[in-house]
Design a binder for these strands. Structure first.
Lengths: 185, 185
DNA sequence: TAATATGTAGACCAGTCATTATAATTATTA
DNA sequence: TAATAATTATAATGACTGGTCTACATATTA
């Protein structure tokens, strides 16, 4: 892993876990064992450029993971339910591979800059579209799929948020159980 | 309004809007026009004591507002739906009276201190219980009411979060429309 | 090899942070 | 009114922040 990647993955982990303001550049360079000069060489516009890059990185990575999980089951109800139960199962392994929420970052960006906020919205749109495609490919109408994919996005992000705050996966499981009634045609 | 209250309400507004780390004590004393000495006189343990007090304050205030709104309609489906639509209607008036979410603060507290996290959980429990009481008083079983009040809490907080990030109330309205199907017996 | 781009290394800067210390003021009570 | 408590008002503190700067090392190319 080169310096650029090391900085990016470390930053992604810390930003996602502790948020933008609670994560210092010094913490990032210490954790990634890279000098400050390198950080500003690879991200000349500093913290904001770095966090924008990590949001995009996480957005893409998570989208692929969602896609992968949903592909395991042709039935969308079962696929999405299993995906959420999987989130619950892996919840307590808090490593780089197990972050499926950018809520903290996204909420912070609202009062940081419009461009960062926009970056977060694009990530949410990307994830929502992944659910949308699954629903479409299972015969849902475009209208229904649009509405339901947004609700799915909301419930999953909400369940992760509450699980993080409570440090307890009950709500993830509860949402998983609600998927059938939510997706009834 | 005395100094104590002035500090508290200003802090509540700023913490809720910008989060814990993005809100400086200097900003609070400037905005509330109170000297720093007073802040540390009324809140000797500084920022953390202050934010704990604001979380409790907001928790209670919002609980009463929820109760009030829900009381306007005997039918729980209609009551909750109208409550959410009301949130959407008042969404763009971002003053002290119009904050119904502590998601940003709550997510931040996870990596600040256990005691702050606990304070947030108590607030969530308080709100959830308000929905629970409404459902119980409308004939829902205790089991059903427990499950549904948690889901309601999740969906409302989630919808506010997404509305804040998108600066757009579409998801609040969408969730309001989903209430009937969600609360079907 | 010489010259040039690419990247690394860390000291340094001005500003801000939460907090503390201390003085001055106001209110309360004897 | 005198004495004491309660509160306000700032200045100062050390730690830390994001960002800049320049020297140095390592590649790449001529």
């Amino acid at each position: 892993m080169n310096t650029h990647e090391k900085i990016l993955t470390t930053a992604a982990f810390l930003f996602q876990k502790n948020g933008y303001h609670a994560t210092g550049l010094n913490e990032i360079i210490k954790e990634s064992a890279t000098p400050k000069g390198s950080l500003y060489y690879h991200f000349p516009n500093g913290k904001e450029e770095l966090v924008a890059a990590t949001i995009k990185l996480m957005g893409d990575k998570i989208q692929h993971q969602i896609e992968e999980e949903l592909a395991k089951n042709s039935d969308p109800v079962q696929a999405i339910k299993e995906f959420i139960l999987d989130l619950a199962r892996n919840f307590y392994e808090k490593d780089q591979e197990n972050c499926f929420s950018i809520s903290l970052l996204a909420l912070e960006t609202v009062s940081i800059s419009e461009s960062l906020r926009k970056t977060c919205i694009e990530v949410y749109d990307l994830w929502t579209d992944t659910y949308y495609q699954k629903l479409i490919s299972s015969g849902f109408s475009s209208e229904k799929a649009t509405e339901l994919s947004l609700i799915l996005q909301l419930m999953i992000e909400g369940a992760i948020t509450i699980s993080l705050i409570r440090n307890d996966t009950t709500m993830l499981v509860a949402v998983a159980e609600k998927i059938p009634i939510l997706l009834q045609k």
